[in-house]
């Protein structure tokens, strides 16, 4: 890639610049900056859309009363039960059980605190249900 070919597309970088390697006029490699590349944005959009679709699926389940609010917060943190278990120190089967609304409703403060800490939110947010 030559410096003049370094893509400068508006993109996922939010105005940041990315460093990449390109050749200058003398044919030597230098570090050039890029504002982003459409190709990357296309690939990134697929990943972002996957995550969003996952969150939406969980939201529908929560609204229908088939999953607890914990499932929604977990999806928003890009986690699955195994990962949330790693973050909280609970067993995976226990986390999975807490994804059931009836079980979640009975959870004590200390358990909720651990979930809230792992998800980076406060206990009130965890208990208050889906935002409108």
């Amino acid at each position: 890639m030559r410096i003049e070919d370094v893509p400068q597309d508006s993109s996922i970088l939010d105005g940041h610049l990315r460093a990449c390697y390109a050749r200058d006029a003398d044919g030597r490699f230098v570090l050039a900056t890029s504002r982003g590349w459409d190709v990357e944005s296309v690939a990134n959009a697929v990943a972002v859309e996957q995550v969003r679709a996952g969150i939406e699926r969980v939201r529908v389940e929560v609204v229908a009363g088939r999953a607890s609010i914990l499932a929604w917060h977990m999806a928003r943190a890009h986690m699955d039960a195994r990962m949330l278990a790693a973050h909280t120190g609970f067993w995976v089967w226990r986390v999975k059980r807490h994804l059931r609304p009836a079980v979640f409703a009975r959870l004590g403060e200390s358990v909720l605190k651990r979930y809230a800490a792992a998800l980076g939110i406060d206990v009130a947010a965890l208990k208050s249900g889906l935002p409108e």
Binding site: R18, V39, E40, A43, A47, Q50
Partner: peptide, 17 residues
């Protein structure tokens, strides 16, 4: 999805191109 992931690993994750 998998193709997009491969492209991201190749370009987006700080590889210098």
């Amino acid at each position: 999805h998998w193709l997009a992931n491969a492209i991201r690993m190749q370009e987006e994750i700080g590889t210098g191109g």
